[in-house]
Simulated scan of single mutants.
Amino acid sequence: MTLTLKATTKAKFGCSSIQRYYELIHVLVERNIKGRYRGSFLGVYWSMLNPLIMTGIYTSIFGTIFASYYDNSIVNYVLAAFTGLVVINFFSASTTQALSSVVSNGGLLNKLKLPISIFPVSMVIANVFQLLIGALPILAVVTLWNSKSLINLGALLFPLIALTLLSTGIGFIVCTLYVFFRDLPYFYEIICFVLWMTSPIFYPAEIVPETVKPFISLNPLLPIIESIRQIALSGDLPNIHYMGQALISGLIFLFLGWSVFRWLQDQFMDLL
């Protein structure tokens, strides 16, 4: 791995920094995917196992109760639960892996001069690759089936881009904090659980009491989940408000995460 990165960093004369950054990301993403699924029969499709199993469990327990909120259709409830699980699983996996990415590569950073940001970014991109191969084709088929519209199919990319931006921003924040606070993974598990429970995954948003809704609305995953469901399941044209809210939220967190990362990264090497 070290030799590969050394070869990558020795770019030819005139090679732009963007190209070098891309090459390093490519190496790390490839290492991540191959290392994670080496010798596996299903490969990246194992990432689909969790949302499928959880969808089945939620449907068996809550499907009949909540079907009335989804046009009295168990199928619609299944698709809504699956959509929410895809979002929360992507977010949890991407940000949790990004959290430890800088610290776990501290030895490499002490040997080579590398842009530190490639490590959290590569973790998010590796999960984007899994999403494109696994869940996205299913969401695309569902969208075409319900909407019969290529507009909806294209619009499906916008909340997924928002999800990627949000995960990258949070990834920058948590990987930065972990350099200074090594107890963060235990605390972050609680945060992910709170986000899971406050996201309308296995329950419809309509059942949330009015007194609780202001707190639920602070969940940055909420507009992303609602936007994907509206585009893929409603059969209506994309709701610009949902998409805009999701993208703005993603961009805000990306800006905040990158600002925190850039502000503190000069102190990293003393602690790695």
Rank of each mutant, 00 (worst) to 15 (best):
V103I: 11
F193Q: 12
A81C: 15
Q130W: 00
G43C: 06
V179E: 03
L132S: 00
Y45H: 09
L109K: 05
R20D: 09
G56W: 06
A232S: 15
L177Q: 01
G257M: 02
G257R: 01
H241I: 10
L237P: 00
M123G: 04
S147Y: 02
G14D: 12
C192L: 15
N105V: 01
S47W: 14
V124W: 02
G154Y: 01
N72E: 06
W263L: 15
L5V: 10
I252S: 10
F13P: 13
T143D: 06
V78H: 05
R20E: 11
N152D: 14
S167R: 03
A80L: 02
T164N: 09
Y69Q: 07
T2S: 08
D71R: 14
P159Y: 05
L3C: 06
I74N: 13
T198I: 08
S259N: 07
I33S: 00
T164C: 12
S227H: 11
A93I: 05
L112P: 05
E189Q: 09
S68H: 12
F41M: 10
S147A: 14
F119R: 00
S227E: 11
D266K: 15
F129L: 12
L3F: 08
A246N: 08
P223Q: 04
P51R: 10
T4I: 08
L222G: 07
L166H: 05
G257V: 03
L108A: 07
E30I: 14
T143V: 08
G244F: 03
V27F: 07
L112S: 03
S60L: 15
S227L: 07
Q230V: 03
E226P: 04
T4M: 07
S234H: 11
K111F: 05
R38N: 13
L136I: 10
L166T: 04
T64A: 14
M54Q: 14
A11N: 02
I116N: 05
A93S: 13
E226N: 10
I18F: 12
V128Y: 10
